[in-house]
Structure formats: structure tokens, C-alpha cells
Computed example of a mutant assay.
Amino acid sequence: MSGLEADIRLERPLPLNVQLQVAPGEILALVGRSGAGKSTLLKALAGLVPMQGHVRVGAEEWTGLPAHQRQVGYLFQSYALFPHLSALQNLLLAMPAPDQPRARALLAAVHLPGLEDRRPHQLSGGQQQRVALARALARNPRLLLLDEPFSAVDRPTRRALAATLQDLRADLAMPTILVSHDIEDVAALATRIAVLEGGRIAQLGATADVIARPASASIAELVGR
């Protein structure tokens, strides 16, 4: 599996000038205030907004590729499951080639065995988010993007979901970017933190270092110091 190298520059919907490198198997957390550009950066990486610069995964150039040609697993805050499809069908639809045994194995890996035939309205919020995580992995992604994946569930469910993602880390050989406003989730999951301010990276470093030694008062407030 290959790492990510990106130089993202855009003016709309908000100015961004960000350079990132994320190693295979690494989880990089993006933190920042509302409007700092976190979700916009994920959309640029996924090919959902036009940008200047470049995006490379390994030796493969993604710049200019439309979203459907990028091998990206994208976990949205709102789950974005198809309501008329079962959990299993949601995964099968996301796969390049439907593979029922693998889809069932992914649902088991996120602790949903026996719930394959339930539709989203028959699942709790935490269970829906587990289906969404399994679906993001079902595409065999080379890059995994997690946009506030735990914000719509309560604290016990957040901890359980974070533990599930932690359990899967050994199998997540792709680079992963996590957007979260919850420093507890970030501390539990991320290898490094990138702090976005005004569309630029204000601080980048190992998770423990950024939390212990924030570079400014505003960053200290973000990381709870």
C-alpha cells in the first residue's frame, strides 16, 4: 500500500493552501475551528471540488481524476446510507465487483453479524455508522477519509466506534485522514495532528507533542490545554 502526497490549493468555497504527506497505515487527524477548511480539504482529496496543485497516492497521479475514478473510502458524518437497501446491499453496491463473503466479513469486523438484512431505519445510530464504516472499506480504498465520523452518536457509542476503528488499524494499510473536533477521539486514534487555521496548517506533529506543546493560545484551546 502506498502513501499520500498532496498539495491542495483552492480559492472556493474557501481559500486553502495545504501540503500533506500521510504514510501507509497512518491516521492523520485534522483539527481546527469551524470554517478552517477541514471538510473542504477532504472533498478536494476525494475529487469533489476543483483544485490546483496535485494529489498522488504512491506513484499514481490523481490530480484531474474525477471522484468515481479515485479509490477513496469516505465516511460521512451523516452516514449517507441508502434507506431502501439492507446493510449488506449497501456494502455490495459500493464494491467494484459484488462479493457477498467479503461484505459479510466486513460487517462482522465492525461487530454487526446477524444484522446484514436490516435496513438503516431498523438500526441504531451507532449501528448505522458501523455499516457506513464497513461500506467505506468495501471499495478497497487506497485512501480513507473520515469526516466527523462519531459526532452524531452519544459518548458510549463514540468510544465503542473508536475502539472498532482501533481494532481495524492493523488491516488499514492505506493512509487515513480523520476530521474530528473531539480531542479524546483524536488522542485515541491519530498518529499525528495537523491543525488548520485560515486554510493553512498552523501546527503539524505527533499527536502527543501537539497536545502537550501547542504552538499558540488558540491551538491550546483547541486541544484542551
Rank of each mutant, 00 (worst) to 15 (best):
A160V: 11
A160H: 14
L161D: 02
L161K: 00
A162G: 14
A162Y: 06
A162Q: 13
A163C: 10
A163R: 12
T164G: 07
T164H: 02
L165N: 05
L165S: 03
Q166L: 12
Q166I: 10
Q166G: 11
D167K: 14
D167P: 03
L168G: 00
R169E: 05
R169C: 03
R169A: 03
R169G: 05
R169S: 04
A170G: 14
A170D: 15
A170S: 13
L172F: 05
L172T: 05
L172G: 03
A173M: 15
A173N: 15
A173T: 13
A173F: 14
M174F: 09
M174E: 02
P175F: 03
P175R: 00
T176A: 09
T176H: 03
I177C: 05
L178V: 02
L178H: 01
L178A: 03
V179G: 04
V179F: 09
V179R: 01
V179N: 01
V179C: 11
S180G: 11
S180Q: 14
H181I: 07
H181C: 10
H181P: 11
D182L: 12
D182W: 12
D182C: 10
D182V: 03
D182Y: 12
I183Y: 15
E184Y: 12
E184P: 08
D185R: 06
D185S: 13
D185Q: 14
V186I: 10
V186N: 00
V186R: 01
V186C: 06
A187N: 15
A187C: 13
A188N: 11
A188V: 08
A188Q: 14
L189R: 00
L189Q: 00
L189P: 06
L189K: 00
L189E: 03
L189T: 04
L189D: 00
A190G: 08
A190L: 08
A190Q: 02
A190K: 04
T191V: 09
T191L: 08
R192H: 11
R192A: 01
R192Q: 10
I193N: 01
I193G: 01
A194M: 06
A194P: 04
V195C: 01
V195W: 02
V195Q: 04
V195P: 02
V195M: 05
V195Y: 05
V195G: 06
L196C: 07
E197A: 11
E197S: 14
E197Y: 14
G198H: 08
G198S: 13
G199V: 00
G199L: 04
R200L: 12
R200C: 12
I201W: 08
A202V: 12
A202H: 06
A202Q: 09
Q203T: 06
Q203C: 07
L204I: 04
L204H: 06
G205T: 05
G205Y: 00
A206H: 12
T207H: 05
A208D: 14
D209P: 00
D209R: 09
D209M: 10
D209A: 11
